[in-house]
Nucleic acid binder design. Structure first.
Lengths: 151, 151
DNA sequence: GGCGGAACCGTTATATTATAACATAACATT
DNA sequence: AATGTTATGTTATAATATAACGGTTCCGCC
């Protein structure tokens, strides 16, 4: 139909839906559930969960997004290409932020530990929960109560 | 065998529903979803998901069962009392078995790593997926195909 | 011996997350 | 053009999890 070609944001080798989902996650920077993604992409024409899940499956297989199992949410990878699963996530209980850290060899060491028990490791990602720096300081200094992080 | 020796099952301080769920998980030995637990306890009078989830919440808080985030399933703890989360799970993709291993200090080391990034760790459990010894051998020797573990 | 509170219980209803299944469209390769 | 492959759009449904309500039991206590 109309000559509508959105060239700038989309990453190459990705289909339209995959590009939309990846762009959104990169822009937002924090974890989003599949239905939150869907809601934000309705204006771009997405209508059904399956469309989002399919795009997420592909992006995850490419290592461009990671699934956070403890939150049932998805986040764009913030480290360049990295060998499969050499990454640790830390997730803030208070503000929901997710941060991806280099795992410093722990995943490999854990795989070796498992192997000693006769188990062959094929995957797995480490997710730790707690408080990010900002929320930790607020919780410690202000008082032992619960508030949203301010502006 | 029968006699009158029920020493392993019911833990003290548990309510009826909690005891039923814990016994079931201990007997089965492998991870079960909440609805699978419910189905197997209908004969004991349980009827609604909330009953199972409540029992599981309490048992998890006591450290008697663990939740496997990557499977949305629950498994009885196989190691005696242990400090919070000093445990690694390895989960077999093929037969579904779960095994709990001592973490050899990795969780603590990871917490230290996170702390260096300004993050205060409050919890988290490591789950690795792959093949257990038995399934790994079958996959390697027999052929590169997919069968259920024998009877 | 009756009164509050706490913890658990059972139940219904609903929210949230994820897949199945199927027909169509787009595109590259023959 | 016929074909195979991949992605798409759509509907329906499965699987997992929680909210909300009222009732019961038990325990401490005055």
């Amino acid at each position: 139909m109309a000559g509508s070609e959105p060239p700038p944001p989309l990453s190459p080798a990705l289909t339209r839906n995959q590009g939309l989902v990846l762009d959104l996650l990169r822009t937002v920077g924090e974890p989003l559930g599949a239905y939150a993604i869907l809601d934000r992409l309705r204006s771009q024409g997405l209508r059904a969960p399956a469309q989002v899940y399919r795009a997420l499956d592909r992006l995850a297989a490419l290592g461009l997004v990671h699934r956070l199992e403890t939150r049932n949410a998805f986040v764009a990878c913030t480290r360049g290409a990295h060998p499969p699963q050499v990454t640790v996530f830390v997730l803030c209980d208070r503000c929901g932020a997710a941060r991806e850290l280099a795992d410093d060899g722990h995943t490999a060491a854990l795989a070796a530990l498992a192997r000693r028990a006769g188990f062959q490791v094929l995957g797995g990602r480490i997710e730790l929960r707690g408080l990010c720096g900002r929320c930790g300081r607020m919780a410690a200094s202000e008082s032992p109560d619960d508030e949203d992080p301010g502006p």
